[in-house]
Amino acid sequence: MTTRTASANEVNHSGRDVGRLVTMMTVAAWVLLGIGFVLSLLNLHHFSDRNPSLMVGIGFMVGSVHIYVIRTAIHLVHSRAASRTE
């Protein structure tokens, strides 16, 4: 019976590096939040549900929060999986 050893350089990472995805989603969430904020401020004079640009601005802001929550979940799952493999 032999014992197999592996150094850190020989380990094959089967998981994906999600750092770029997390960064991209963070930037997208902030950009969409900014667009929604600007759209909402420009059309605040007629505060009604019949104001489509105000509703789109609010939708952009809500969507940016969803993107940021999904980004956080991906980041947490990946960091937890990485800490288990070490």
Rank of each mutant, 00 (worst) to 15 (best):
T2P: 15
A6P: 02
A6F: 15
S7D: 06
A8R: 13
N9E: 08
E10Y: 08
V11E: 07
V11S: 05
N12H: 11
N12D: 05
N12I: 14
H13E: 11
H13N: 13
H13F: 11
G15H: 14
R16E: 13
D17N: 15
V18W: 05
G19C: 07
G19Y: 09
G19M: 08
R20H: 09
R20P: 01
L21N: 05
L21H: 07
T23P: 01
T23L: 14
M24W: 07
M24L: 13
M25L: 15
T26P: 00
T26L: 10
T26N: 15
T26W: 08
T26R: 12
V27P: 02
A29N: 00
A29I: 04
A29P: 06
A29G: 14
W30T: 13
V31Y: 03
L32I: 06
G34T: 13
I35C: 04
G36Q: 03
G36W: 02
G36I: 06
V38Q: 01
S40E: 02
L41A: 15
L42F: 08
L44Y: 05
H46W: 05
D49P: 01
S53T: 13
M55Q: 07
V56K: 04
G57K: 01
G57S: 03
F60D: 05
M61D: 01
G63L: 08
G63M: 05
G63Q: 02
S64Q: 01
V65D: 00
V65E: 01
V65C: 03
H66S: 13
Y68M: 12
V69R: 12
I70C: 11
R71L: 04
R71T: 10
T72I: 07
A73Q: 07
A73T: 11
A73H: 09
I74A: 03
I74D: 01
H75W: 10
H75T: 06
H75S: 14
L76K: 11
L76I: 12
V77C: 12
A82E: 06
R84Y: 11
T85H: 10
T85R: 13
E86A: 09
E86I: 07
